[in-house]
Each structure stands twice: as structure tokens, then as C-alpha cells.
């Protein structure tokens, strides 16, 4: 476990989160080596999203440590994460409904801009350069997902699958090093899921990926390593083949689904 510290991956150690009397996470530990895809699976209510929220500062952990490339993440505000190269997609996509697709993704790229408030008020300084840079970056990210032609559309007017692509483009717009995906396959067709799996495998070259997902075939297909949560505890961890064969996992999770 401590070996990952030096190599600069994600290290989660003994993290516990309580909501009143409910223990959402109990001494959860896991690691994600750089440039791998780590799946986090488990039944609904197992604590997967709570773990993400603790990682992103949306929920306060009661104890434990989380570090990314040796930098501690716990106790930070959510807005500090982007600066550390961490990006996350949300389960509900949470696109900005009244802003165009391009503007949505420009917000995702925002940390690449340098101009301050004074420049924003006066329109002087780096404003033009920043704006061109963010727009170019946003269009690149949209093009990667094949939706550059939708740049001027409003998100609510798009079909579900395309909105998911825009949300992914927004998360990737700032070139993150660690990407947290929250049920990216949810609601997609088999064809779209196959395409998404291919993309996630490709992400490995550029970043480390954490994947919370219910679609078991895809998880087994794309992950290098899988951690299984149940009732807030890690009940198993290992490569996909080992997880598939684990009796406790089958009982807790896969058995239900079959």
C-alpha cells in the first residue's frame, strides 16, 4: 500500500465517513496506480458516491488520509481539486442548462485561463487571449467526443447520450491527471457503452481513472484493478479475474444481479 506513495498514484487510507448514526464508509483503503483504470463497484448504498464526495471535498471524512501524487486531498474545498489536476463527472451530468455546450466546456477548461478580476472588469490584458484559448480547448475536447458540431446548442435540447459526451468533454477540458467517473455508462445503449469502454481504455495513456459503474461487463472489460464496496467496507480488491471468482463478491453483488 505504501509503495504507491512514491510512484505518485492515488492513495486512500482508512477513510471513514459518518452521517449522524449511519456509517457510510468504514476504514476504506484502496490504491490506484498511475495510468491505470480502477473500478469501484458495489450494490446501491455501498458508499461509492460517498467515497467520491470525500475525495472531492463535498463530504467531510471523519478519519483517514487521501493523497494524490503525495498531496493530501482531505480537508480541501471542492474548487481546489481542479488545480491539483483532479476532475470528476457527476452522476446526473449537471450540465449548465442555460449555457451553450461550448460555454459548458469552457467552464471546464477555466483553470487554464490566467486573467484576474481587474482584467475581467476592464476587458484589458489577457482577456482576449484567455477567451480564445479556452474556446479552442473546449472545441478540441468536444471534437474528441465527436460533438464539436453541437457547440452552440443548449444541453437540455440534446439527447441523453450526447449530453453524457458533453459532460465528459467538460471534465477532460482542463487536461486532468486523475479522472473520477461516476456511472458514465448509465442509460447508454450497448453500442454507446462499447464506444465509451474504448475511450476509457484510451484515457489510461494520459491519466489515472477511477470508475464507479454498475455495468459489470464494461467494468470487467476496462479495469486494471477493482475494489468492491459493501456496507461501506472494502470486501474485495484485485484484478478483474480475481473479483469475478471471489465468492464474497458474488454473494454481495454479482449474485444479486444475475
Amino acid at each position: 500500500m505504501t509503495s504507491t506513495e512514491g510512484t505518485g498514484g492515488l492513495l486512500v487510507e482508512d477513510v471513514s465517513v459518518r452521517f449522524g448514526g449511519v456509517v457510510a464508509l468504514r476504514d476504506v483503503s484502496l490504491t490506484a496506480a498511475p495510468n491505470t483504470v480502477t473500478g469501484i463497484i458495489g450494490p446501491n448504498g455501498a458508499g461509492k458516491t460517498t467515497l467520491y464526495n470525500a475525495l472531492c471535498g463535498l463530504v467531510r471524512a471523519d478519519s483517514g488520509r487521501i493523497s494524490w501524487r503525495g498531496t493530501p486531498l482531505l480537508g480541501r474545498r471542492p474548487d481546489e481539486l481542479a488545480g491539483l489536476g483532479v476532475a470528476r463527472t457527476l452522476q446526473g451530468m449537471n450540465l449548465f442548462p442555460l449555457m451553450t455546450v461550448a460555454e459548458n466546456v469552457m467552464v471546464g477548461a477555466d483553470r487554464l485561463a490566467r486573467g484576474g478580476t481587474l482584467a475581467a472588469l476592464t476587458g484589458l490584458g489577457r482577456v482576449g487571449r484567455d477567451e480564445r484559448r479556452l474556446r479552442a480547448r473546449a472545441l478540441d475536447a468536444l471534437a474528441e467526443f465527436g460533438v464539436a458540431h453541437l457547440a452552440e446548442a443548449l444541453p437540455p435540447s440534446l439527447p441523453f447520450g450526447l449530453r453524457k459526451r458533453v459532460a465528459l468533454a467538460r471534465a477532460l477540458a482542463a487536461d486532468p491527471d486523475l479522472l473520477l467517473l461516476d456511472e458514465p455508462a448509465g442509460g447508454l445503449s450497448a453500442e454507446e457503452i462499447a464506444e465509451l469502454a474504448e475511450r476509457i481504455r484510451g484515457f489510461r495513456e494520459r491519466m489515472t481513472v477511477l470508475l464507479v459503474e454498475h455495468h459489470m461487463d464494461m467494468v470487467m472489460d476496462v479495469c486494471d484493478h477493482i475494489a468492491v464496496l459493501n456496507f461501506g467496507r472494502v470486501i474485495a480488491a484485485g484484478p478483474p479475474e480475481a473479483i469475478r471468482a471471489d465468492a464474497a463478491v458474488t454473494e454481495a453483488y454479482l449474485g444479486d444481479a444475475a
Binding site: 472531492c56 481546489e80 481542479a82 476532475a87 457527476l90 449537471n94 442548462p97 467552464v107 477555466d110 483553470r111
Partner: peptide
């Protein structure tokens, strides 16, 4: 429009 999504993009 969406405070959580904005914060995760690095906005305060």
C-alpha cells in the same frame, strides 16, 4: 446554474 459542477471545475 449548478454550484457543485462549477466548484468541481475549479470555480469558487
Amino acid at each position: 446554474d449548478d454550484e457543485a459542477a462549477a466548484a468541481l471545475s475549479g470555480l469558487r
